[in-house]
Design a binder for these strands. Structure first.
Lengths: 117, 117
DNA sequence: CTGTATCCCAGGTGATACTG
DNA sequence: CAGTATCACCTGGGATACAG
């Protein structure tokens, strides 16, 4: 095993799911199935069109999500998780679970730290 | 479940392990046990002192690694994974495994794409 | 409706030098 | 040996306007 970022396979996995909105997008598609661009957008208050497009494109590039365009006016584009993308689900769920516990862990730490000054 | 980055627990987990050298540092400490600062440094060609210090401090702040200082001259500082940090191991291993497969996945994709131009 | 294009800023990272 | 301090760069991300 090479101990450099370029050879670390964990980093290979991280680059897929890192991105301010990527985990949320993946949760949406995993839990709610195929979604239109506008559906995703409306469920994520705060994201800009540019960002949603960009994050989706990056996920598509890695075969995690698929993009289906309906050639019509006005345009209709649907996004969904690929079978390959679904292999990420266990990891995402494990991280969600760990993250939830860690959130509580931090709160407890902050409380005990409130003794000082 | 809130669909915003600030409430996404996956992001809570990600912030812990994201950092150019953090996965590598964690692998070192998980596989080789307690390590001195200079030992970590020598096994990670390319990292600077500043970065190694910073990444370790951030991991320490989250109770993932512990730091033991020996008050002597010259200084000696040892780093090790905490029991709490060890709860991340399954996730790291899952990501390593997925990342390894994904690496191959990408190579195959590049080859089939070599038809064009 | 589903995008692009442009400008901008903050933060993560690196190079380098200095210190107890 | 194990750090800090400083400067500089680059990329991710946001705001906004425009387009097919």
């Amino acid at each position: 095993m090479k101990y450099e970022p370029d050879f670390c396979k964990i980093d290979d996995a991280l680059t897929i799911i890192v991105g301010k909105w990527k985990p949320i997008i993946l949760l949406h598609l995993l839990n709610h199935g195929t979604q239109r661009f506008s559906e995703l957008r409306s469920q994520m208050p705060g994201i800009t069109q540019k960002m949603l497009t960009k994050q989706l494109r990056e996920l598509e590039e890695e075969d995690i999500v698929s993009r289906k365009v309906y050639p019509q006016v006005p345009p209709k584009v649907e996004y969904s998780i690929t079978d390959y993308g679904r292999t990420l689900q266990p990891i995402l769920e494990a991280m969600h679970e760990w993250g939830t516990k860690h959130h509580a862990h931090r709160l407890k730490k902050e409380n005990t730290a409130s003794h000082e000054s």
